[in-house]
Design a protein around this nucleic acid. Structure first.
Lengths: 145, 145
DNA sequence: CTGCAAGTTCAAGTCGACTTGAGGTCAAGC
DNA sequence: GCTTGACCTCAAGTCGACTTGAACTTGCAG
């Protein structure tokens, strides 16, 4: 199979060499040897990098990806995890949509006290209570507590 | 108007005192005095904190928010910026939706070589080329370059 | 043979949004 | 008067994903 020195991978992938080294160190990609000092990769590293980019887009961490894309060529995909991620994306999307709508409303509302607007209030409540900005622990409690 | 010592704000907002101090330091909120050592806030700081939470949900940075919510009570909202943010959210949402769909497909596809699937290929292309995972500079170039 | 671009290693730095820790102060209750 | 607990300040640490810098090595062109 075709081999690529790091410079070619850099050109073809658009990623800097430092990132490729970093990925290798993390175990996301493997170099199959050296040409002089330079790392040499299998051509399919490009495919793997695409997969990594996809995973990152889906907000998977590099550590998640290390677990999914095992060191041997074939990705060993954790379907359960993927489904879970898809569900997380669903709620993220829903939250972002609500916020986007509210941003548009605020941006086009002539009034200065959005805070007095019921729909705005509702939004604030939703942001504070249910959705968190990082799928985690945050947000405000209902002020009435 | 009603005043709240920091402990009350902590209880009512759910945010730790360290965060409140941090926000004050950044200029996001203001304390109006001290009771002993303890900071005292206007009751409307809670409203402001909700607004900040909203902004964060919309992926605005604290610095953005400092600029929007000026130190005097009324937020001085930059409508242009909000519209822009809404548009950004639109593309984020679109990207995340595509990725979610693809994750679901991959998760339920019995084949091991998703890479050979045309729709998966297309996805990888899209992730690499157009959308970036951080609304910025990244991603892979088309491998054909 | 010389020079240089392109690679290398390793340690440390960056960014944003906070958190943590050490050591200090203050008001209130026993 | 003394302890307790809530709060304070200031500096430093954390996390993830990289980047940057210094010092060094190589292969190849001229």
């Amino acid at each position: 199979m075709k081999e690529l020195v790091i410079g070619e991978v850099v050109r073809r992938s658009g990623l800097p060499a430092s990132t490729l080294r970093y990925y290798e160190e993390k175990g996301l990609i493997r170099s199959i040897g050296r040409r002089g000092l330079s790392r040499v990769f299998h051509a399919d590293v490009l495919e793997r990098l695409s997969l990594i980019a996809l995973g990152q887009s889906a907000e998977l961490s590099l550590d998640d990806l290390v677990a999914m894309l095992d060191a041997e060529g074939q990705p060993d995909i954790d379907r359960q995890r993927l489904k879970q991620k898809a569900d997380e994306l669903d709620s993220t999307i829903e939250r972002l949509s609500a916020i986007r709508d509210e941003l548009r409303r605020v941006a086009s509302c002539p009034a200065d006290r959005h805070i007095e607007c019921p729909s705005f209030q509702k939004m604030l409540g939703a942001v504070g209570a249910g959705g968190e900005r990082k799928a985690g622990k945050g947000g405000l409690r209902k002020p009435g507590a």
